[in-house]
Design a binder for these strands. Structure first.
Lengths: 356, 356
DNA sequence: GTGAAAGCGCTAACAG
DNA sequence: CTGTTAGCGCTTTCAC
């Protein structure tokens, strides 16, 4: 008798527990018990059942199992894109931690579209995801808070947990966990690093107004300037629409076209922008760090490649912590509902002291 | 009457269709029909039901729905890591295409561990994933073919479809779809590009023996040399253990330590290796492309940053095609079970003609 | 040890 | 147009 599996054609119907029971000459309850392994069964029966399982290529139906109360736990992650190194790193950490805790990882990307975000949330809710982790940069306004409040409550009502990762907390009464990192502190330290090297005219490359990470980072920049008694020159802030390499290149090129540099250092809102800005500087004949010092933010792949001094963001810890906190249900009422992880400057070769 | 959602505490139990029916004063069938929208219902009833749905924060249970026959379709993707740009790009494309076709995307990373791969497969099988897409570089041997054959048959028996993306076909009788790209052709073209520029001593950086993409790429390198009548010097092949930046750096540094370069160009097995090799060359005082020409493979983020001439791999198309073929069930028996996508050289600034 | 039977939440005939 | 009812595949009492 050939195994069904030996046929290359798709089976018309998946084998069910009943098929196994029939093939093994036992009841379905016995099959369930053998498979569950949580109940004493006679060795002979067990053997017969396992043989039937193999013969029929039987695999439990997780939906049926879920309905009966034993669900495959899963953690969902909603992100605008996995191509972005930032999200990829956090997503990887989430997946790894979830797997370690025996959970499946559902993923959905939104491309930054709010409708798709909502759709993803709804889907994850239907799928009974134990936790839904929302990652990334957003505009923090009333609309956002209202929307996230809705998500959080809907999830809570369904026994699930919303986690905001690198996003602002929507308000005190919203049942969400927040795992964030210190954008402002990191930017303050980064800017401080440049200031300590003697730089006073520091171009801020790639501010994206309204977005929380951007606002947090530029706030740190401003704080550092203020702390060093350096007046802020609004002309030194280059606002852009995207936090990407291309944008950094474009902004810097336009700036250099308009006038010779009136700055000695550049602080880019992230490493990708720094990489783009760097290229424009090079094309303009400016060397880094000899002519211009450059700092990035994130400490992601492009940084090592271009020897970029930058600020390390704990992507891995961000993802792992998000999962850990979400699954640790016995949290004593909000004790650690809001975690902020630290960042630190990573010195490479793109900054040098200003001499003269 | 406050909405249940207004409470920050998790509900003891999710609202079911029965709760909604009771609240709306109708039968569960009516609720189902209103929600399904596939059946005529009185406007007044619809309003009452929808109100109850909102009041109770009701969300259908996709497991129950799946059991009853209407399943949320999903596509699973199994990959060793999403941090690797190659996988991230393909994964992104898979997710996007899946979402476009109304499917949820399950993701599992294995870290290259075969046990985790098997576990992931089993899980996806239990979850009734419509298709399981396996991505990436592997060793092609009997063990691999046996294993993948098992996967494919188990999935087929469950009415699911195995797709191998950038992996070799395991054999003729295995019910799997293969979506691959032309490693050898791309490497032949890349090497040809260097040869046409007059280079004869071309270092191959980062060969990982046994792995299919590596073997495919080095085969193209050899073919191109042969076609140009250049004898292959085994001493010009640097074998490594990882296809990563660090490894490229390490290999190149050791090579340069041992002896001054006896090559005029470098062909790296991928862009990351190229980026690492480039750094080692720079540290040794060698300029690119003035002193040494450099080619990569993949055309992924590091390539633009470092102006790398490389070979473009259609990651996006790879992922989209994988999903499309998997879902297109009416394939006429293997007509397009094996697709090979093309690659092409992308010229940037890291190669220059050899003069003198 | 094992079997029979009652659900889990939902959809889809089948009656009204 | 709406209600009743029979499963979907599984786990888990409750009997034997």
């Amino acid at each position: 008798m050939p195994r069904r599996a030996a046929s290359a054609e798709p089976a018309d119907r998946r084998a069910t527990i009943r098929d196994v029971a029939k093939a093994a000459g036992v009841s379905i309850a016995t099959v369930s018990r053998v498979l569950g392994g949580t109940y004493p069964t006679a060795a002979a029966t067990r053997t017969r059942v396992m043989r039937a399982v193999r013969d029929l290529d039987y695999v439990v139906n997780s939906h049926a199992r879920a309905l009966a109360g034993i669900s495959t736990k899963s953690v969902a992650i909603v992100v605008s894109s996995v191509v972005s190194p930032f999200y990829a790193h956090v997503a990887q950490a989430v997946e790894t931690q979830a797997a370690q805790e025996g959970r499946l990882c559902l993923i959905s990307t939104t491309g930054g579209d709010l409708r798709r975000e909502l759709g993803a949330l709804k889907l994850m809710l239907e799928e009974h995801a134990e936790a839904v982790i929302l990652i990334g940069n957003v505009v923090d306004n009333d609309e956002y808070r209202r929307r996230v409040g809705e998500y959080a409550r809907a999830l809570a009502a369904a026994g699930s947990q919303l986690v905001l990762c690198g996003r602002p907390a929507p308000g005190p009464d919203v049942p969400a966990i927040v795992v964030d990192y210190d954008n402002t502190g990191g930017a303050r330290a980064a800017t401080g690093h440049l200031l300590s090297a003697g730089h006073r005219r520091i171009l801020y490359l790639g501010h994206k107004p309204g977005y929380t990470t951007s606002e947090g980072r530029i706030a740190g920049y401003r704080e550092a300037l203020a702390a060093h008694g350096v007046p802020e020159d609004p002309g030194l802030v280059l606002a852009g629409g995207a936090l990407e390499r291309q944008e950094g290149y474009r902004l810097m090129r336009e700036r250099l076209r308009a006038a010779e540099p009136d700055f000695t250092a550049v602080f880019a809102a992230n490493d990708q922008l720094a990489a783009g800005g760097r290229q424009a500087l090079h094309e303009h004949g400016l060397r880094i760090p000899e002519d211009i010092s450059l700092m990035g933010y994130d400490d992601l792949p492009p940084a090592t490649d271009i020897g970029l001094t930058t600020t390390h963001v704990p992507h891995d810890e961000l993802g792992r912590t998000a999962v850990r906190l979400a699954l640790q249900r016995d949290r004593a009422g909000g004790a650690d509902d809001h975690v902020v992880l630290g960042t630190h400057v990573v010195v490479r070769q793109s900054v040098r002291p200003l001499t003269g």
